[in-house]
């Protein structure tokens, strides 16, 4: 159902453009249409995932097409929660590009349904992939928030009261959301690594084989562990934390795309 993916990309894109317009001119109309387009995009996106589920008979995270769609979907769910909790459309300006890029990837890497490889047919699939991608989604939104923090902090320090400054929330809120998302993403990522190791043991008889995917997942884990450690022990917060969360997300992206595209790994689907 590639066309469902493409329709939702278009709707996400319109919502993204509306969120940019909202920075310069806030009207109830723009708010209304932003909500309309983003929610419709999300509903169609959700339908496409559900249909895929019925088509392949298991959770549709078995290849790049499916997983990036699920990744994008999880990012949007978190966005939706934050949007309704804090009510700032400007969040869309920073989060929707991530959703759109992942959806475009999903559309480009579209694959017809073929039999799911036997190695994937296991209940580990659900635990491993769902925790990996919801964790990734938390890190993605944390990075978007981190960028917003960087901008707002610059505006405050340089004393530049731009339109964007007026729309962005306070640095403290951004810092808190950034931190909370990492505290959610970190255990999920940890669970993904552990479940992956156990799954590997049950199918191949070996927990860990220093495969590039495993190495990069571990590097990512270390970056976020560092963020949490510095925050809890050294009281690091604000700019440096926000910057590290962006770097962490780059590691997430490399683990996901880079390893599959540039490296030899048994973990490419």
């Amino acid at each position: 159902m590639k066309f469902l993916t493409d329709i939702s990309i278009t709707l996400y894109l319109i919502a993204f453009i509306l969120s940019i317009l909202n920075v310069y001119k806030t009207t109830n109309k723009i708010r209304f249409f932003f909500n309309l387009f983003s929610i419709s995009a999300f509903l169609i996106h959700t339908i496409s995932i559900i249909m895929r589920y019925y088509d392949i008979g298991t959770i549709p995270i078995t290849n790049m097409h499916e997983s990036s769609s699920f990744f994008a979907w999880s990012v949007f769910v978190i966005f939706l929660y934050l949007h309704y909790r804090y009510r700032f459309i400007v969040l869309g300006t920073f989060i929707l590009p991530i959703v759109i890029l992942l959806m475009v990837t999903s559309s480009l890497l579209y694959s017809e349904i073929r039999g799911v490889s036997p190695v994937l047919q296991s209940y580990w699939l659900i635990i491993h992939t769902v925790s990996a991608f919801t964790g990734n989604a938390s890190f993605a939104v944390a990075a978007g928030i981190g960028v917003m923090y960087q901008l707002q902090e610059r505006f405050l320090k340089k004393k530049k009261m731009t339109e964007l400054f007026n729309k962005l929330p306070s640095v403290q809120i951004l810092d808190e959301i950034n931190y909370r998302l990492i505290t959610i993403g970190f255990p999920l990522h940890t669970l993904a690594i552990i479940s992956g190791a156990l799954w590997s043991e049950s199918s191949f008889g070996i927990f860990w084989r220093w495969d590039p995917k495993e190495v990069w997942a571990l590097i990512t884990w270390l970056i976020y562990a560092t963020i949490l450690h510095l925050r809890l022990v050294k009281g690091w917060r604000g700019r440096k934390s926000a910057l590290l969360s962006v770097i962490g997300f780059l590691a997430v992206l490399f683990t996901y795309f880079g390893v599959n595209l540039f490296m030899e790994s048994y973990h490419t689907f």
Binding site: Q152, L156, F165, L168, P169, S170, V171, Q172, I173, E176
Partner: peptide, 8 residues
């Protein structure tokens, strides 16, 4: 107003 852009 500035305080409101710094603190939650």
């Amino acid at each position: 107003e500035l305080a409101k852009k710094i603190f939650s």
